[in-house]
């Protein structure tokens, strides 16, 4: 087995992930998307990040 085979399997996995996402997720609308650059946009940063503190436990 060569690295090419592994690479193809990883690529297939990524294509499958995107396909699942396109089927399951809310439709995309580029006209409601935020501007390209956050700095200076006037919009608060809202993206998920691993360092964001979690909600308090119930």
């Amino acid at each position: 087995m060569r690295r090419a085979h592994v690479g193809w399997l990883v690529a297939l996995g990524m294509v499958g992930l995107i396909a699942l996402d396109r089927v399951q997720s809310a439709p995309l609308n580029p006209y409601t998307a935020p501007p390209m650059i956050a700095l200076g946009s006037g919009l608060a940063a809202t993206g998920g990040h691993c360092a964001a503190p979690p909600p308090p436990a119930r």
């Binding site: 956050a38 940063a45 809202t46 990040h49 360092a51 964001a52």
Partner: peptide, 11 residues
Amino acid sequence: VVAGQPWGVVY
């Protein structure tokens, strides 16, 4: 500057 948040991976 673009994303409004620093580089992250695991989220």
